Simulated assay, not measured.
Amino acid sequence: MTPLATPDIDEVVDQRASVDPDRNWQTVVWNDPVNLMSYVVRVLREYFGYPRSVATTLMLAVHEQGHAVVSEGPREQMELHAQAMHDYGLWATIRRVP
């Protein structure tokens, strides 16, 4: 049996450049026709612990711009936040930090 040939590699590839586990993700809450603005403020205060002023600013962004980034961090944590928003009845997704 002949050994397999190993091709010569001329290019050095930095694997960290294509997959960066530390790259942040975002939880995005989207506007919907169902939930009251006061309810969205309550959810953001209760779940994230935001002060009323921050929760109100985020809610207004959701209402006026259609969405708001409510949290940033590791992907797994953002997935948990998005699921929690779903449990509260809000529309939420995650995305990589642009």
Rank of each mutant, 00 (worst) to 15 (best):
W25S: 05
V41E: 09
V62A: 11
E76A: 13
N24A: 15
S38I: 04
S38G: 09
M78V: 03
Q77G: 12
S38A: 10
L44W: 05
V19T: 10
S53E: 10
P74V: 08
Y39T: 01
N31R: 10
N24H: 11
P51E: 14
E79F: 01
G89K: 04
R45K: 14
N24I: 07
S71N: 10
V54T: 15
L44F: 05
R42Y: 10
A61L: 13
E76Y: 08
G66T: 09
A61G: 11
D22R: 12
E72V: 15
L44E: 11
H63V: 04
L80C: 08
M59N: 05
H86R: 11
E79R: 08
P33W: 01
V54S: 09
W91F: 11
R23C: 04
L36V: 00
S71W: 02
G49N: 06
Q26G: 01
V69M: 04
D20A: 14
V54E: 12
W30S: 14
V70L: 08
Y50K: 15
T93C: 05
A92I: 02
S53R: 05
D32H: 07
V29F: 02
N24T: 10
V70H: 00
V70I: 15
F48Q: 04
A82D: 06
P33K: 07
L80K: 07
F48E: 03
Y50R: 11
A84S: 06
R75Q: 14
N31F: 06
V28S: 04
E46C: 07
P51C: 06
G89V: 03
T27P: 05
M37S: 15
N35R: 12
